[in-house]
Amino acid sequence: MRREQERGGGIKSDETLFDIVEQLRELDGAGVTQLATRLDVAKSTVHGHLTTLRDRGFVVKRGNEYHLGLTFFEYGQYVRGQLDVFESGMFAVDRLERETDEMVWLIAHQGGKAIYVYGRGGNNDINVNTILGESVHMHYNSGGKAILAHLPEDEVDRIVDRHGLPARTENTITDRDRLAAELETIRERGYALNLSEDLSGVHAIGVPLTVDGDVQAALSVAGPAHRMSKERCEGEILERLRAAADEIDLTIAYR
Rank of each mutant, 00 (worst) to 15 (best):
residue 240 R to S: 10
residue 151 L to F: 14
residue 200 S to T: 15
residue 247 E to A: 15
residue 40 D to V: 07
residue 194 N to V: 04
residue 112 G to C: 02
residue 18 F to E: 00
residue 248 I to T: 11
residue 33 T to W: 00
residue 109 H to M: 06
residue 169 T to Y: 14
residue 159 I to W: 07
residue 40 D to F: 06
residue 178 R to S: 15
residue 187 R to N: 01
residue 170 E to R: 13
residue 254 Y to P: 00
residue 202 V to I: 15
residue 203 H to L: 03
residue 2 R to Y: 11
residue 85 V to M: 00
residue 61 K to P: 13
residue 203 H to I: 05
residue 41 V to Y: 03
residue 45 T to Y: 01
residue 228 M to V: 03
residue 201 G to K: 04
residue 148 L to S: 14
residue 141 N to W: 06
residue 234 E to A: 00
residue 229 S to H: 06
residue 150 H to W: 05
residue 113 K to D: 00
residue 216 Q to K: 10
residue 94 D to I: 01
residue 122 G to D: 06
residue 203 H to R: 10
residue 166 P to A: 06
residue 94 D to H: 03
residue 136 V to D: 10
residue 54 R to F: 00
residue 75 Y to M: 15
residue 32 V to N: 11
residue 33 T to V: 04
residue 249 D to I: 11
residue 84 D to C: 01
residue 120 R to F: 07
residue 70 L to C: 08
residue 63 G to N: 11
residue 171 N to V: 08
residue 127 N to H: 13
residue 135 S to V: 03
residue 111 G to M: 01
residue 81 G to I: 14
residue 238 L to E: 13
residue 154 D to G: 04
residue 16 T to V: 12
residue 154 D to A: 14
residue 224 P to K: 06
residue 39 L to C: 05
residue 54 R to T: 09
residue 181 A to M: 11
residue 119 G to Q: 04
residue 237 I to F: 13
residue 11 I to P: 02
residue 186 I to A: 08
residue 97 E to D: 07
residue 42 A to N: 05
residue 192 A to T: 05
residue 210 T to I: 00
residue 214 D to L: 00
residue 58 F to D: 01
residue 214 D to K: 02
residue 159 I to P: 07
residue 154 D to R: 15
residue 7 R to L: 05
residue 15 E to S: 09
residue 145 K to D: 05
residue 243 A to F: 03
residue 102 E to P: 02
residue 226 H to M: 12
residue 59 V to K: 05
residue 243 A to Y: 04
residue 177 D to C: 09
residue 59 V to A: 11
residue 239 E to G: 12
residue 87 E to I: 02
residue 197 E to D: 09
residue 212 D to A: 12
residue 148 L to P: 03
residue 240 R to W: 05
residue 134 E to H: 11
